[in-house]
Amino acid sequence: MRKFIIGTLAAAGMAASTAALAAGGDQQITDVDWSWEGIFGSYDHAQLRRGFQVYREICGNCHSMNLIYYRNLQQIGLTEDQVKEVAAEKEVEDGPNDDGEMFMRPALPSDHFVAPFPNDQAARVANNGALPPDLSLMTKARLKGPDYVYSLMTGYQDPPEGVEVAEGMNYNVAFPGHQIAMAPQIFDEMVTYEDGTQATADQITKDVVAFLNWAAEPELEQRKSMGLKTMLFLIVLTAMFFALKRRIWAAVH
């Protein structure tokens, strides 16, 4: 019987090994302690707002986030007016109007984040032929996503001796294959935080990763708090079933 349980666990381990496979050899990934990890984990909303500022000022020049609406920003603590203001910085095409013409108007909270480029081709042309991927799901679309993106943004180094870096590419220890078309993006004091947080490169990176993780998993806080209540309820319920089972079966044993 015990062997059977071990066997079952081994089968579960098998699933984990699939994941291990995709990690692939020599990427250097740093393990960061994120506030949203663990059973009681939750987002630091001030950090999310700082991360959004980083996206808005830096990453948003190249990367789209097509799945996010401006209205979603209220979830991380922007006021309705602030959201309107942020949205109105960008223009979107709308229409046709009564004359049958398409026209441009400022974006509204009900619009998706406006992408920096009108299409993939335009994005490639502006980036030496490389396509900056959409960031809405980035932390879910890579193995150990948040750690990976952190390591990527901080992983730029001089190439080791003997390694040729191709034209327009940058050496990065976290990127698979180590040559990435994106140049280093984050430096100390690159943004000025309103809440007085010291804007070190490390801090900026952590903030933007937190924001990206929120964008990928906006349900996380609701999920974890619901999980806690559900698990507590189930533990009690299952214990009661067990007690009842023992009671009912007492006569049989």
Partner: peptide, 26 residues
């Protein structure tokens, strides 16, 4: 029913705390 209770604890642990454990990031 007791089995269902134990099973739900196992199942919902993944749903709430590691929902993409069995999935592929790709």
């Amino acid at each position: 029913l007791f089995g269902v209770g134990v099973f739900l604890l196992f199942y919902l642990f993944f749903v709430f705390y590691a929902p993409n454990f069995f999935g592929e990031p790709d």
